[in-house]
Design a protein around this nucleic acid. Structure first.
Lengths: 192, 192
DNA sequence: GACCGAACTCTAGCACCGCTAGCCAAACTG
DNA sequence: CAGTTTGGCTAGCGGTGCTAGAGTTCGGTC
């Protein structure tokens, strides 16, 4: 059994290498630079090997996205934990979210923008993304009022998502970014 | 001079045909289906003709986007005109925006999502988009409070954009769409 | 230790993409 | 009618994601 075990171990390691290579390449040069040929060269195997691990390029990107969810969840959790009060918590988590999107645009794209196979808000949502969403929901809890917390959180989250994506695509004035964030936070932290 | 005039007329007509074909193809089958070869076949010319009109595929998409801006502006203006009060105007324009994005996803993508060469919030923004933005700003004017109207409008617009894009990519529960819209409108139409 | 069979990887290639060089024919000019 | 210019076309380049089938390596068995 040890031989088979070793093989499975090597195989798993190679799979990790593929995901890591895709992630690094995407973060360094954008997703356009992530081709199956470059990926294969990076892991020092031939192209078809990729397809013995993943159904296709989309599946690789989805795997990167799932991994990225963990990072996002961690950063949101840290921001929430560091806050001194409910309103500051919302402001902090919003800033953390925006900074994540700006610091790692390729990762953010993989999670939220690129059309991948992984579906959200359904049964098979990545558990790490659920965690990230829960951080947001926890933070917003005091301000949901009569609205359903999940729906309320989705709306706030959409606001954040819109801000970061529109700005990154050059559709918003960059210098007003913080003010926009402040407005969004302000509007979602009013009681009554 | 009439010969040259006819030529220019024919040339302009062909350019319109290219944009129309690209738009129809994109709306019918998505932007992935819009290839230069299919586009050339559609207008019954060879591929290189496209490049005598546009710098490349991106420029064609940008042209479609600019055209689409006019439609969006029209629909937003109509929604604003039909409203019976300031708050209803915001709700109406938000619904109109969301319906535009849902009814013509390819067009919406060309305008806001796909990385094109046209830049916004700068000098050479398409005039039609400025008009669409102005409709939003006018509608939101009564609710901006102390915030700068343009920045306030950008924030609300980002909320709308986030809602429609996340939902279309399967990141939000579709059945909660109207409730999310209502929450967004509610939060941006509170006075004081 | 030699061999066999299975597991696995690689080479080569498909159909497609955006884009362009260079030819050729048609149209205008004198 | 000859010459030139204009403009569309054919053909092809280098790239993409993906795959069929050949070839090699390696573990298990006699």
């Amino acid at each position: 059994m040890s031989i088979q075990a070793r093989r499975e171990r090597e195989r798993a390691e190679r799979e990790r290498a593929i995901i890591a290579a895709a992630r690094e390449l995407a973060e360094a040069e954008g997703w356009d630079a992530v081709t199956t040929r470059r990926l294969a060269a990076e892991i020092e195997y031939s192209q078809p090997v990729l397809y013995s691990h993943f159904k296709g390029k989309g599946a690789i990107m989805a795997a990167v996205a799932v991994e990225g969810c963990a990072d996002l969840a961690d950063e949101l959790a840290a921001a929430r934990a560091a806050a001194t009060g409910p309103r500051q918590a919302v402001a902090g988590i919003a800033t953390a979210y925006a900074e994540f999107a700006e610091r790692r645009p390729a990762l953010y794209d993989a999670i939220f923008n690129l059309p991948t196979d992984l579906s959200f808000a359904t049964q098979e949502t990545p558990v790490e993304l659920v965690r990230a969403f829960a951080e947001l929901a926890q933070t917003l809890h005091p301000f949901a009022g009569d609205d359903n917390l999940e729906t309320f959180t989705e709306t706030f989250w959409s606001g954040l998502h819109g801000l970061v994506t529109l700005m990154r695509n050059g559709r918003l004035r960059r210098e007003e970014h913080e003010r926009r964030l402040a407005i969004l936070v302000d509007r979602f932290t009013r009681l009554g």
